[in-house]
């Protein structure tokens, strides 16, 4: 309606043309990058869904049959899973504590303001953090099996080492952010290096650290369910046993227990974190 009342001005027309042209160009370049991404997707789809998949064997029917096997859910086995579930939670707890324990020296190295040997130790500390986070827990578990054999210890070590990266990164960043006030105060009354660390830094970073450990604990519960691969106990071990026996109903039952444990864990970590803050 207003367009009609606008005076036809060639200057305005020219401005609009310029804008329209510019918008077309932007749209085209956007479309072009979208097309590239789409081509890549189609390429991977071709490689994965068409070339790599054996459609002769994989049919709707076969999928339906395999899904149906999971339906043989065995509720009577659930009470027997309580004990393994407790084991799983305890494994996650131990792994988180151990992770915290191992993370402390790494954080000390990797915090810019307290790192002992300057740049060298800082870079080393940061490198350890990256290494810990970059290697998947499955790989860590396999590495530890070679050292301590199959069993719960390898699983706990793997989870602990995998947790170190995140915990130490958070601690290091918290240490880098500490307020100088209390440290100055302790230094002013002649405190030693250890006293500075213990009374000046620890209280300030403690809530962050505990929050992070709880966060990792939550994740470690999830992780511990696959540590059955290396014979670590708990629900993970039961799961892998059922898998070895191709007992799909049993697998589904264990997974239900895992889910229940994770939900419980979510509640526990939620309230634990609230208690700290």
């Amino acid at each position: 309606m207003t367009a009609a009342t606008l005076e036809p001005s060639s200057a305005l027309d020219r401005r609009i043309d310029a804008i329209a042209r510019e918008r077309r160009t932007t749209r085209r370049s956007r479309l072009a990058s979208l097309a590239v991404a789409l081509a890549l997707v189609l390429g991977t789809v071709y490689a994965i869904v068409i070339k790599d998949t054996d459609w002769a064997r994989l049919t709707w029917q076969s999928v339906a049959t395999s899904l149906a096997r999971f339906a043989e859910f065995d509720t009577s086995a659930l009470p027997g899973l309580v004990d393994p579930a407790i084991d799983t939670a305890l494994m996650a707890t131990l792994a988180s504590f151990l992770g915290l324990f191992l993370a402390l020296p790494v954080a000390w190295l990797g915090a810019r303001n307290i790192t002992p040997l300057g740049r060298a130790s800082y870079v080393f500390g940061r490198g350890l953090m990256t290494l810990s986070r970059s290697v998947h827990e499955i790989v860590w578990a396999l590495i530890f099996v070679s050292a301590v054999g199959l069993g719960v210890l390898a699983g706990i070590l793997a989870m602990a080492v995998r947790s170190v990266g995140f915990i130490s990164k958070v601690i290091a960043e918290a240490i880098e952010d500490v307020q100088p006030g209390p440290i100055e105060a302790i230094r002013a009354v002649g405190g030693t290096k250890f006293q500075i660390l213990w009374y000046g830094i620890v209280p300030q970073v403690l809530p962050v650290v505990l929050g992070t450990v709880i966060f990792e604990w939550d994740i470690n519960i999830r992780r511990s369910t696959i540590m059955g691969l290396v014979g670590a106990g708990g629900l993970g071990l039961v799961l892998f046993r059922e898998m070895a026996r191709s007992n799909y109903g049993g697998i589904a039952t264990v997974l239900a227990a895992v889910l229940a444990l994770i939900i419980v864990g979510e509640f526990v970590s939620h309230y634990a974190r609230k208690a700290i803050i």
């Binding site: 994989l58 076969s62 999830r222 369910t225 997974l255 895992v258 994770i262």
Partner: peptide, 24 residues
């Protein structure tokens, strides 16, 4: 989120068979 990615993998493989598709 609550199911570990490797458990998703195990489930996907048991339904779709070996290969890249269950991985994806």
């Amino acid at each position: 989120r609550s199911v570990h990615e490797m458990i998703w993998t195990i489930l996907a493989v048991s339904i779709l068979g070996f290969g890249m598709l269950p991985g994806v």
